[in-house]
Nucleic acid binder design. Structure first.
Lengths: 209, 209
DNA sequence: ATCAAGTCTGAAACTTGTTCTAGATTAGCG
DNA sequence: CGCTAATCTAGAACAAGTTTCAGACTTGAT
């Protein structure tokens, strides 16, 4: 295994290891970002304000996160790690894999509901991201996949199931957006999530070995 | 029925009817928008350039389309109308509703592939749109729904089927984004579309009466 | 044809993301 | 400690979306 490919536990590439002060700066920036986002969503996260709140020069902010979208996607990675930890503690109770996944996603959904502006900022950044942010967005996607597979309780998913999981992720993001922009109710999101989760049972090789 | 609620054939609200010159301006603007988008995607659609290309003052451009996102979403409405017309001419051949829908979407997908920059601009605008663009985004969504229902050949869909259609739309948008940002191959998009389309048969009350 | 109201133009100004620069600070090393 | 390279800071500068405004032009009604 080539040394360059090593990853930290977080799955982020471990390029140059940060000093303590740098790690602290990075945390301050992410914290400021999340805080501003919680207040007013995507637009409220203004780079100058983030820099000021986190006691860092604008140029430094851009050295850590090369664009506003990078910053917000990193913020999302951060929040996702939190959420994965929280979800892990109380595994879903459903009988079927579909039920468990739907339950997990709705739980995540309710968590986002508590900070709708933050959710707005993160999701808008995620879908607005262009090619230059692909690695980071991909990382978020992988993290989401892990959460879903966890809920399924599936160790070795078939490629069919992986496709179903991707579709569920698509639906999850897109449904989130329609809710955030006020075009769908929570009830509707719930129905759509439950609908798409049926795909899981449909693609299961057998219900339980 | 209140007069104010009247809609044109296009489904757009018929607020104040435009004069001929105004209609011409509007077309010039949309044309310039599509042309610039085809060249370089979202970033290449610069409001000053659109104004110049369409021989209209910047202020006028903003009177017609209150933001860049509004403009691009309107551009998408325009293109969708085209596409619906084109698709109508050659109805899909599949046996099942699921096959027909998948075929239609993949056909639309290949059309977008021919102008990837334009697709990029439109889709990014669509998902980046905030509440202030909801009516227009909703209109795009309705138009997409009509295309899918057309492909299904379903006159009176059940609410279950409508949910399946919404999930398909979610998947369609989101898959498009992952493809546009280089995170998924066309083959993968095809698989995902086919996967999600299975939901249609799953939710069909009976295959054919 | 004329007038009032509404529309269009051109240009400047403002906002916020992003880049650049010169000098101060810090980290790692001999 | 003292050096060097890398990093950080403050602030100016630039780019593109958006707003504003005074004056010219159109439109519709009388």
């Amino acid at each position: 295994m080539p040394v360059e490919a090593k990853l930290e536990a977080t799955g982020r590439p471990a390029s140059p290891p940060l000093t303590e002060r740098q790690e602290a700066r990075r945390r301050r920036i992410l914290h400021a970002s999340a805080q501003l986002a919680s207040r007013g969503g995507f637009d409220a996260v203004q780079m100058r304000e983030v820099a000021e709140s986190s006691q860092v020069a604008l140029g430094t902010l851009y050295r850590y996160f090369p664009s506003k979208v990078h910053l917000l996607v990193a913020t999302m990675q951060d929040q996702l790690e939190h959420m994965h930890g929280t979800l892990r503690k109380k595994p879903p109770q459903g009988e079927t894999a579909a039920e468990r996944v739907a339950e997990t996603l709705m739980r995540a959904f309710r968590a986002l509901q508590r900070e709708p502006h933050l959710a707005d900022a993160m999701v808008r950044a995620l879908t607005f991201a262009d090619r230059s942010v692909s690695p980071e967005v991909d990382q978020v996607s992988r993290q989401t996949t892990v959460i879903i597979l966890d809920a399924m309780g599936q160790e070795n998913p078939t490629s069919e199931q992986l496709s179903a999981v991707r579709v569920i992720e698509h639906t999850w993001h897109s449904a989130l957006i329609t809710w955030l922009s006020g075009r769908a109710s929570i009830a509707q999101v719930k129905i759509d999530i439950e609908t798409v989760c049926r795909l899981i049972d449909l693609t299961a090789p057998q219900n339980k070995p």
